[in-house]
Design a protein around this nucleic acid. Structure first.
Lengths: 355, 355
DNA sequence: CTGTTAGCGCTTTCAA
DNA sequence: TTGAAAGCGCTAACAG
């Protein structure tokens, strides 16, 4: 832990040149005689000298660090975004720092202060907190942050604040799911995980409702703002066992794959066969979704692509002052969790003994 | 993007004091008259001045940044570690940067150079690359890195390199799994995902083999160095359909939960009932493991705890010069994927029509 | 092609 | 209790 005290001046002295020359050699500046460069490199290698990028950053006014703010990297959706951001940053020699913000936490002045003090080269924000309708101060805080560095969000438009955005077209994505189900013959479909809290969910709901209306489908919303497997299990169990067979949906669309995991389990636990008794569509296309029982038909919103595009945009920010959002179109991945509904009137699954 | 040019000198001038005084106020140094401090704060607030932590870092020789090097944050195990590292770092006002290294990539001089140039306050390493037996240069490279900053690894001991470590006791953990299966009456157990490449797997294998020997169990190793669901599905399908019912294991232990996902699917696909035809134990206790079909009995190696302890150790590094590894004891989470084997000689599941 | 010089924005003795 | 001054390690004119 001592070598780091070696400075460019020591190297310069040892090589019999000035620090400016060493600097030029190190940054591959052309105007250096080959012989001089060689000698400097020898000394650098001999002592294992490593320039201090903090000092360089101070002078050049950039840190070569990008910030990423999200609620939970453990969630595969965010992990995908973060991972992609890291790879993009790596390509241009930058590092990414992670900052956490609870799902419903507000972007606080404190967090913003930290980002600014660290003089990050840019910040990427993703997560429900951006969409929270009760985050009154959000626009002001983001506006402040934006005075100091470029910002890109993976989010719907934020009223009162403009910046570069990347966002999946959930609205039309969910419509694809409904159309798929309709083409299979479903007439009663439930959307599980509806909530008024986040706009990303709002877009899904709205797409769902519109498609149902257009296609003459009885679409029902099941509200549940917590999108965990546990919540999904409870929610679907209640829904199915609480109503007569004729009133039960023959298909469900779940707000995300994580919650769908619980829906699948709840359905199996109540004796329903998937997809025969009830078809299930998820949203996210997580790595595990091809291995559920049965493999889950789901909407791929391509988190990594979102992260990649957002980071790229952040990095090219200056070329691109105030542009339209980049829209990523989700793709419906058809697996085995959907089939045609059983003929109306026949047994509605194993749920009857419970109702 | 202009305000950041405001420096401590501007504030000092505006407040009619020297920059030293502003500095003292900002860092809550006691020797400042209350009135002076107040005036300074007023000016700071008025202009929204934000100190430059890069400049401060240059002087104080620390960046308040920790580096985390791992193969893939998208993998829930690594995501857990990284997330925990972030939280721990946050507590002490530090940020975490992610650096990626492929599973079998070597820790290169280039990566190490970057860490040193950025003058990180410490580095946390986790992942198979640390364990690769063919990484001949690893000790030398890590030794170099360690000259510049504290290092903690989440790994088995690295021959030729000493540093603080945190590691789960996989050896005894897997024994618990075997014991559980033995107590259920299993006599033929397979370990899926064996490999000579990584020592973390080696420890599992060894624990498995020892427990089998001790308990008089016919333990078989299925080699497969790629631990994906797809590989698990292929591996188990081959194993089960390739041998007569009497030779098939009645239980399998899978090297991790991710691969177990595929094993479960392969087994179902071949017509085996879980747990009656074959019991399955995973390893990791991922968030999805409670929601597989059936819910997976698994060894919880507690990635977040590993990450938390490792980070804490990194931060307290100086108090703790060259200590023993911290060992985390995994816990067997019993769910529904294991049961007693069916009476010997009875139908071995749906696999027969294939053998 | 190379050296001198003047900082980048902050902290920290040392004196006052 | 405060200020002056000397850097932290590097880069970027500007001369030469």
């Amino acid at each position: 832990m001592q070598d780091s005290r070696l400075t460019i001046i020591d190297i310069a002295r040892e090589a019999g040149v000035s620090s400016a020359t060493v600097s030029r050699v190190l940054s591959k500046h052309p105007n250096v005689k080959a012989a001089t460069a060689l000698k400097v490199r020898e000394v650098v290698d001999k002592y294992g000298y490593q320039p201090n990028s903090i000092a360089r950053g101070l002078l050049q006014r950039q840190s070569h660090v990008l910030g990423v703010i999200m609620p939970d990297v453990k969630h595969p959706y965010y992990a995908g975004i973060f991972s992609a951001a890291q790879r993009e940053a790596e390509r241009i020699g930058s590092a990414v720092q992670l900052y956490r913000l609870d799902y419903n936490g507000e972007v606080t002045l404190d967090l913003v202060r930290q980002l600014i003090e660290r003089r990050l080269d840019g910040t990427l924000l993703a997560g429900g907190f951006i969409e929270s309708p009760n985050a009154k101060e959000l626009p002001a805080i983001l506006t402040r942050l934006k005075q100091y560095m470029p910002i890109v969000t993976i989010s719907p438009a934020i009223p009162g604040f403009e910046c570069a955005r990347v966002w999946p077209d959930l609205h039309s994505g969910v419509q694809k799911a409904v159309e798929h189900l309709a083409s299979l013959g479903h007439k009663r479909i439930a959307f599980i995980g509806a909530t008024a809290d986040t706009r990303s969910v709002g877009e899904r709901q709205q797409g769902f409702l519109e498609a149902c209306k257009r296609l003459g489908i009885d679409g029902m919303l099941r509200y549940e703002s917590i999108h965990t497997p546990t919540a999904g299990e409870a929610c679907v169990t209640l829904m199915m066992n609480t109503r007569a067979a004729a009133d039960r949906p023959t298909a469900v669309i779940v707000v995300n794959d994580l919650m769908a995991l619980g829906v699948l389990k709840g359905l199996r636990g109540s004796g329903f066969t998937i997809p025969d008794d009830v078809a299930v569509v998820g949203c996210d296309n997580q790595f595990y979704s091809a291995f559920t029982d049965p493999p889950l038909t789901t909407l791929d919103i391509n988190a990594e692509e979102l992260g990649r595009l957002a980071t790229r945009r952040l990095v090219n920010g200056d070329n691109d002052p105030s542009p339209n959002p980049i829209v990523v179109v989700p793709e419906l991945i058809i697996r085995e969790s959907c089939a045609a509904p059983k003929a109306a009137g026949s047994e509605g699954g194993g749920g009857d003994d419970r109702a």
